[in-house]
Design a protein around this nucleic acid. Structure first.
Lengths: 124, 124
DNA sequence: GCCGGTAGGTGCACCGTACAGCTAGCGGGC
DNA sequence: GCCCGCTAGCTGTACGGTGCACCTACCGGC
């Protein structure tokens, strides 16, 4: 309350949240890594490192969740475009469901936290 | 839709979610590891491994977020009881705020997912 | 020629997580 | 007495995701 604030509280986004984000963006339309890199920030992910993003895309490619194809660009280097597969779409549905389950757990946490706050006002 | 379902979709709870849970439970009252182990399941954490929980408690002890004391038990082995410190309370407030921020991000995800579902019905 | 933006990628260290296993106190059944 | 199961706490280790740094290559403009 008075002294030093907690130096660095981890923001604690879900584990492996990048993958669901990429799948969702690819469900909205075919895209490529560099473009996805700019779009994921709109989904709560801040400061995504490019390396991890490209690795994640490659991994999902090898797992069959997405399909990739090189596409030459008129201006600039070639792009590897990614497209969602049927398996990836199934994965998206499943992971969206589990994310909603996570959201409900977080709501339960918040409710219990607020209850502690009110009781804490009495016990202090 | 018809073939094999996604073998294992990671439930993707927040990174390091155990710590906020332990802090919240300790804010409700002094407790010890084995008891906390049974209580965290009510907060969305399923199948928490004891090793990780005890390690997490020790780590928070060393960081000054909690205070520990050995307490002999009338029946059974001695317990190390944990109590929240002021610093731990600050940490709890901060992390609860960031968890609500995460929940809002997940809501944004869900909304965008549902939008894709509706558009997908048209484009299919 | 060089710089900045676009586009993709590797190497590596760190840390949380999962799984397995271990010690020890106590109580009850055979 | 002996073993089993429950309580209670702890260690060792391997795996995987994350973050940071760094690199290549194409293109256009100064």
């Amino acid at each position: 309350m008075s002294g030093a604030p907690p130096e660095e509280v981890p923001v604690a986004l879900p584990r492996n949240y990048l993958r669901p984000c990429l799948l969702l963006l690819l469900a909205e339309g075919t895209s490529h890594g560099y473009e996805l890199l700019e779009q994921v920030s709109a989904l709560g992910l801040d400061r995504v490192d490019p390396g991890g993003l490209y690795r994640s895309l490659r991994a999902m490619d090898e797992e069959g969740l997405v399909r990739s194809a090189w596409q030459p660009s008129a201006s600039g280097p070639a792009r590897r475009t990614y497209e969602l597969t049927d398996e990836g779409r199934e994965w998206l549905h499943a992971v969206a469901g589990s994310l909603e389950h996570v959201a409900r757990s977080l709501d339960a946490y918040s409710a219990r936290y607020r209850a502690v706050l009110e009781q804490g006002r009495l016990r202090r």
